[in-house]
Computed example of a mutant assay.
Amino acid sequence: MKIRVLYEDNIKNGHKNYTTIEIPDGDYSVMLDIDYEQRLTQAKPEKKAEVKRCETLQEMFDLINNKEYNHWRRYHRHLGKPKTPYRKDDQAEDETDVMDTFADNSQEIERNLQDEYESVCQWIRTTLGKKQDWADMFIAVRIDGMSIRKYASSIGVSENNITQKLKRAEKKLQGIFKNRQI
């Protein structure tokens, strides 16, 4: 008797490549009974009535093959032929782009950086307390990178005034930060 078996290694780009195995003739009722009992125990209680005993060995292996193929397909369904090939050498055995399997966590990184930025700004505002203009100035100039000249012209004061306030804010923040770490 010949049966067709599907191995996961033989699934190429979604196409099934069966391996034919020749086995000696004989009574396979024990094997079919064991398979039926295993599928019956694995079935959900409401689906147990739908589980049928396989009549032939090939029918049993077809069920196994479909399960194996569906498992392979579930894992590989999002891997396709890339628009630009990842490999530049002419190896045609793998037509998927390896980079498609890596997770894209750029949005998570952006959210974490934004959360960190907001927590630092909140710490500066609470530390400087009543001097909210110092806090806004420090965040704009030292963290956001705005020039002193541009910030001074945006609020309508002299650059010297901003420089002096900035030095005082830095000194106060450094003192509190050093004491906080100890």
Rank of each mutant, 00 (worst) to 15 (best):
D97W: 05
G26L: 02
I109G: 05
E110A: 15
R4A: 12
Q38S: 10
K150N: 12
N112T: 13
L63N: 08
D90N: 14
A49L: 10
W123E: 07
C121P: 02
Q38A: 10
D25K: 15
N65L: 05
R77E: 02
E68A: 12
L32I: 12
D115C: 05
H71N: 12
E95P: 08
S153K: 14
H76C: 01
K16R: 15
M60T: 02
E37K: 10
E116K: 14
N161E: 11
K47M: 00
D97N: 14
W134H: 10
E55F: 04
A103R: 09
Q114S: 11
A92T: 14
Y86H: 09
Y36G: 03
D35Q: 01
K171W: 03
G145M: 09
D97C: 14
G129Q: 13
N17L: 08
D115H: 06
N70Q: 14
G80V: 00
W134T: 03
M146F: 06
I143A: 03
E55L: 06
V157T: 14
G145K: 11
S147N: 09
R180N: 05
L79H: 04
I124T: 06
N112C: 12
Q174P: 00
M1S: 12
P45M: 00
M60E: 00
H71Q: 12
D27W: 02
A135V: 12
E93H: 15
S106Q: 11
P45L: 00
L166S: 08
S29G: 08
Q107A: 14
D133L: 10
H78P: 00
C121R: 10
D33V: 03
R125K: 14
R74L: 11
T84M: 09
E159I: 02
Q174F: 10
I162G: 04
